[in-house]
Amino acid sequence: MQQIAAAAGVSVTTVSHTISGKRPVRPDTAERVRRLIEEFGYVPDSGAQRLKTGRSRIIGLAVPDVSHWYFGRIARGVEEAADELDYGVIVASTSNSDPRREKRYFNMLRTRLIDGLVYTASREMTPTEELVKLASKSPVVLADEAIPSLDGLPSVTSDNYVGAQDLGRHLASLGHTRAVILSGYAGLKSQIERVKGIRESFPNALVLYGDFELRSGYDLVSDLLAQDVRFTALFGCNDLMAIGAMQRLREAGIRVPEDVSVVGFDDVDMASVVTPGLTTVRQDMLEIGRRSGRLLIEGLEGRTELTSAGSVSLPVELVIRGSTATAPA
C-alpha cells in the first residue's frame, strides 16, 4: 500500500479508503489508485483484514454430499448470492452429518475463518451435539430442511406439504384409491410433510422408507411385488426413487401409466426425459441456496435478524407429464 501511495502521489490512507469504499475519494484519484493496484497485483491480506474488522467476508456451506446433483444446485445458489454481495464461500461435505467431519468444519466458524454457516441436514431431524453448540453462539441458516429442535434458527425450505397435497389430489381426481408411498429417510421433516400431504387424499396408503436413490425405489417395488401388494398409484418422495420404481414396474410387465400411475417430487433434469415423462412437483433448489446465502449475509451485516421469524417457505409447482392417467378398472 505504501508503494501504491508513493506511485500515485497520495497518502496510504487514501489508498485504504479507495479499497474499502468507507470514505469518499475523488474519482480521478480513485481511478489512478485502482490502475496502480492492478499493475502492482496488490491483494489485501485476509488475515490482516480479519484482525482489523473481525470479519473474513467468507461464509461456509455444509451439505451431506457436495457431489450429489441436488446439493450441488443448492451450493451453486449459495455461491451466486455470496458473489453478488462480495463474499466468498467454503463448501464442505459432511458425509451425511458425520460428527467428526462436522466438528472440523464448525471449528472454522468458531475461529472466525468463516463468518457464518449455511447448513443442510441429511438423515435425521435430531441435530448433532456439535451443531446444537454452534447454533447457540454463531450465525447459522438452515437450508432445505428445517430442524424443529433448532426452532430459533432461520430456515429456507420448500412447501413440501402443499406440493404433496397437490400430487395426492391429482391422483385422486384420476380415480385412484390404492396408493403406495416411497419415502426417503423417516426422520426428515420434508418427508414427514410429504407423507402427510399425500395421505390427505390416501389415508390408508402404505409407506415404505428408502434413501432417495434410484436403487432404493427399484428395490422397494421389488419387495412390493414379491409380497403381491396391489396398488394403482405410487408416490415417490423424490424423483430418483420414483424413476427407479418405474424401471422395476416396467421389468415386471406393469405399464406406467396404464396399470400404475407414478409421481415424484423435485423435478430433476431426468424427470422430463424418461419415458413416460414423470409427473412431479417442481421445487427450486437453486433459489433455496440463493435465499439461504442472502439471508445469512444480510444477518451478518445487521440488515436483518437471524431468527426463525426470518424463515422462508418457497412455493412449489405441480408438473403433470405422462406417468399419470385414469385408474384402471
Rank of each mutant, 00 (worst) to 15 (best):
G152P: 04
P154W: 12
P154I: 12
P154L: 10
S155R: 07
S155W: 06
T157Q: 14
T157H: 10
D159C: 13
N160D: 10
N160I: 02
G163V: 12
A164Q: 10
A164R: 08
A164F: 07
Q165D: 14
L167I: 11
G168D: 00
R169S: 15
H170L: 13
H170A: 11
L171F: 09
L171Q: 04
A172Q: 08
S173G: 13
S173A: 13
G175K: 03
G175W: 02
H176N: 09
A179V: 10
A179Y: 08
I181C: 01
S183I: 11
G184C: 07
Y185L: 15
K189L: 14
S190A: 15
Q191K: 08
E193F: 09
E193N: 13
V195S: 06
G197F: 04
R199C: 00
R199Y: 07
E200Q: 01
A205N: 04
L206K: 09
V207N: 00
V207L: 10
L208G: 08
Y209A: 06
D211E: 14
D211K: 13
D211T: 11
S216T: 07
S216G: 07
G217W: 10
D219I: 02
V221Y: 05
S222L: 14
L225C: 01
Q227N: 11
V229N: 04
V229A: 08
R230V: 13
F231E: 10
A233I: 10
A233N: 06
A233K: 02
C237P: 01
N238Y: 06
D239M: 11
D239W: 05
I243H: 05
M246N: 07
M246F: 04
R248E: 13
R248L: 13
L249A: 02
R250V: 02
A252T: 00
G253M: 03
I254A: 00
I254K: 00
V256E: 02
E258Q: 04
D259G: 08
V260G: 00
S261P: 08
V263L: 07
V263E: 01
G264T: 02
F265W: 13
F265Q: 11
V268E: 15
V268Y: 12
V268M: 15
A271L: 04
A271Y: 03
V274K: 11
T275D: 14
P276R: 05
P276H: 06
V281P: 03
V281N: 03
R282C: 00
Q283M: 14
Q283E: 14
D284M: 10
M285C: 09
E287K: 11
R290G: 03
R291M: 07
G293M: 02
R294M: 10
L295W: 03
L295I: 00
